[in-house]
């Protein structure tokens, strides 16, 4: 299925983020050989030049590297992946706190609520096993 893009931002940025997410989530594991640009373009249903641009950006940021003759691979540097994971998590929390503030919750109240919810989920997890 084609990837879904929002209309207000450059497409290459969104392709870049989507691939980054796949790396962080482990869907694209470290050292994995990436599909060819054209295949990625077909999968995402976007222009191959857009994919190329996204990959160049990812390469610049150290998420992927090119082996001159054999193609493009996901980085095996744990630090890069870990850092990206933290950045992503921070971004999610920030956006969550923003939404909570909009419905009148202070960050502390939001944190409290998260604590309660986390216990519940953990509890369910224990009994469910």
């Amino acid at each position: 299925m084609a990837w879904i893009f929002t209309s207000d931002r450059p497409i290459y940025l969104q392709v870049q983020e989507k691939i980054k997410l796949s790396i962080v989530s482990g869907e694209y594991p470290p050292g994995w050989k990436m599909p060819a640009v054209r295949d990625l373009a077909l999968e995402a249903a976007v222009n191959p030049n857009t994919v190329q641009k996204a990959l160049s950006e990812l390469e610049r940021e150290g998420f992927v590297y090119t082996q001159r003759t054999s193609g493009r691979y996901i980085t095996e540097d744990d630090m890069v992946i870990k850092q990206a994971k933290n950045e992503l998590a921070t971004e999610l929390v920030r956006s969550f706190l923003g939404k909570m503030a909009a419905i009148g919750f202070s960050p502390a109240e939001a944190a409290l609520l998260i604590g309660d919810k986390a216990k519940e989920v953990d509890g369910n997890g224990d009994t469910g096993m």
């Binding site: 209309s7 207000d8 450059p10 497409i11």
Partner: peptide
Amino acid sequence: PVDELRESKGMSVDA
């Protein structure tokens, strides 16, 4: 370029 337009206008080409 499409992405330049999206970047500068903050909207899709269609919009």
